[in-house]
Structure formats: structure tokens, C-alpha cells
Design a binder for these strands. Structure first.
Lengths: 193, 193
DNA sequence: CACATTCTGGAACAATTGTTCCAGAAATCG
DNA sequence: CGATTTCTGGAACAATTGTTCCAGAATGTG
């Protein structure tokens, strides 16, 4: 009947995500998006709705991709502590590779929009819950395998770890001093001892 | 010779700070600022320069005020641990009073601008250094008074505390669940034991 | 081939952005 | 009072914002 889409929807969304990730919501213009996504202005509106809707879809995509990464990393057999160390150290390393210092898209969304956009608030809150759960399960496994000592409220530790992750990612935007970031990581992970 | 200023410069700057604090840089329009500051458009430009310059001055004001608060709280005689608990618990309580969930202005600035504005980056970095130092000094006192055990890298702990503070403030934007935030605080402060 | 559909580019939209210009009112000090 | 300076309000600026309309090209299916 009709013509097919010329562009790959997922690819375009990926590009949109990159723009929102590095610039945030307000500072990203439709013009920026059109250029980086490589699609037509009208196609953007037809496919994704308006700017706000596109932002939410980009945020969802990020959550899905990063959520999966976290899940994979944590459910791997082997030392849970080591996996967590890898997770946090990865953030430090990543911050030095990323010239734009984009940080965490979800954290950025919390900071910029969660306070005044309920759709964003719902998504960042859900992300917290999902990540917390993955961390909690990993900690449970660590306890089961004798790597993490009992007597601790592991749910609370999981929440702490997520919060620390966000804090670290924010710190990485302010400083490029590796020692500072590594200090933070070291003390953070010391709660597992 | 000439007419005096009709408005109080500090008061106007305070108002500007409130606008940038709750809306961020991009989302705050000159119109918003003019209305909330209660001064003339032209007076704004004459007194503070352009929007960007005004933002930096507002950020500086915030840093000064909050910095002083932190300093006062930490240098008080008495239990250092108690002061830190008060500090973190205060953030939790504050997040429930603040309907706008503004978080920490410095943290917001890191998230939104530090990556692409070097003046902002310098200021947030300096804030980190100042706060770290105040925390470090407090920890030293705690150690001297026998409240905090030795053998820990207190400089690292101070950095950790600042990062945790920022993380907590970000978490408070995502969730209104008191238990979650208190869990984070409890585990964070447990590194002092 | 021909119809139907949808993509594409560009123009156009009104609204808002940050900023400046201007004329007049207001206030200080000699 | 009068001279000088600065504040004040509003208009005006060009640029950019997000969004929509339109005409035509391109593609798939009958």
C-alpha cells in the first residue's frame, strides 16, 4: 500500500538520546535533534510526537540499555564485591573518556526535570526501584555465598549504593581529579567489608 | 550628584538565586527573573550584566550562604558524628518541606552546566574543595577527641561525604519515600563507625 | 502501470528568547 | 532651584524557539 520508513526508528532514537543526554532537555533544540538524528523535521514529529514525548522515549531507551548492562554485570557468577568495584571504577574511567561529561542520563533527568515533570519523576523513580532491586539481589547472593557478612540491612545498602553511584557521577562532572573520585569509590565500597 | 538605587542589590540577587535554583539556567527566562526580582529589565542588565553573569553571581551567593551554614554547623563544639547526622537528616527533612524539590543549587549547576561552561565548572569545583576541607577538619577534630577511630584516610572520607550528600540530594528529587532516604543516610554515616 | 500512502524538504507560523534603545520621571547635591 | 545622574517603563530588536502546513518525490501493493 504505502512507502516504508526511510530511516531506522531505533537508530534515530539512539541519536536523540545522545543529544538529550549531553545537552539536557531545555538546552537541546529541535534543530539540534533534527541535525544529529539525520531525519526530517516532519518525520520527527510524525514518529515521536513533540519534543517532550521524544525526550521521554529517549530516557526510556537509556533506562532499558543501561538497566540491562547493570543487570548483566550483577548477575554474573563470581565475586559480587568485584562486580561492584568494576561498576564504580567503570564510572570513574568513563568520566575520563567522555569529553562531554554527560554523566548519567537518569541522574541528569532527576536534576533537571523530576521536580517539575511528573512523567520524568515517575521514570527516574522507577529506575531507582529497578536498580535497587538488582543491587539488592546481588548483595543477597554475596551474603549467601559468604562474601558479604550478615547483620546488615541489605535493602538499605542497595539504596545507598544507587545513591552513591549518582553522587559519584555528579562529582565526575565537577572534577577531573582521579584521586578524588577514587577516594569516593574506595570509601563507598568499604561499607561492604 | 545622582539618584540612588531604588532596590536592594542583595535582595534582588537573592530573588534571582531562588529562580535559578528552582528552575535551573536554561529554563529560567529573563521574564521570570524580572518578575520575581521585582526590578526593571534595564536595571537587571545595568546591575548584573547578562543572564549568564547573573547566574554566576547567584551561584556565588548560594555558595557563600550555604558554605557558611556548613562551616558553622561543623565547627560547633560537640559530637562531630551528631553534627553530620544533623546535616544529612536536615537534607531529608528539607526535601519534604520543599514543594519544588530544588535540591542543591551547586549540584544542579554541576549537572546542567559544569560539563559545558568552564566558569560554572570552576565554581562547582571550588565548592567541592571548600566543603571537603570543612568536612576534613571536622573529621580531624572527631579523631582528636576520640570519637572517630584512626586508621582511616580522613581526606577520602570527607570527599565521600560530600559526594554522598550530592547523591542524597539527587535521590530526594526522585523519591518522596522517607524510608529510602533514611536508609541512604544510615548506611552513609555507618562508615564513621 | 496506477493508485495509495508516506516520506521529504522547505517555507511559514506565532510565540518566546535575550538584549538594547529611548524618553521621561525621580532624586541627589552643589 | 538646577544640573546631573540614574532609575524606570515600554517599545523595539533580531534570533531562536517548538510546531505545522504544503507540494512534490518516492515507494510499495493491487
Amino acid at each position: 500500500m504505502a512507502r516504508h520508513k526511510e530511516f531506522d526508528r531505533d537508530e534515530a532514537l539512539q541519536k536523540a538520546m545522545e543529544v538529550f543526554w549531553s545537552r539536557g532537555y531545555e538546552a537541546a533544540s529541535i534543530q539540534d535533534l533534527v541535525e544529529h538524528m539525520g531525519i526530517n523535521r516532519q518525520s520527527l514529529y510524525d514518529t515521536f510526537g513533540d519534543k517532550h514525548a521524544l525526550y521521554l522515549q529517549a530516557l526510556d531507551r537509556y533506562r532499558e540499555v543501561e538497566g540491562r548492562k547493570l543487570f548483566e554485570l550483577l548477575k554474573r557468577s563470581g565475586s559480587v564485591k568485584k562486580a561492584l568495584r568494576q561498576l564504580f571504577q567503570g564510572v570513574v574511567e568513563g568520566s575520563f573518556c567522555d569529553g562531554e561529561r554527560r554523566g548519567c542520563f537518569v541522574g541528569n533527568a532527576m536534576s533537571e526535570l523530576a521536580g517539575r515533570c511528573k512523567e520524568t519523576a515517575a521514570r527516574t523513580c522507577s529506575n531507582l526501584a529497578v536498580a535497587e532491586d538488582a543491587l539488592y539481589r546481588a548483595l543477597l547472593r554475596g551474603k549467601r555465598e559468604g562474601e558479604i557478612k550478615g547483620g546488615r540491612d541489605l535493602r538499605a545498602v542497595a539504596r545507598f549504593l544507587y545513591s552513591s553511584m549518582q553522587g559519584l557521577q555528579l562529582m565526575a562532572k565537577a572534577t577531573r581529579d582521579r584521586k578524588t573520585l577514587e577516594d569516593v569509590v574506595r570509601v563507598t565500597l568499604s561499607v561492604l567489608d
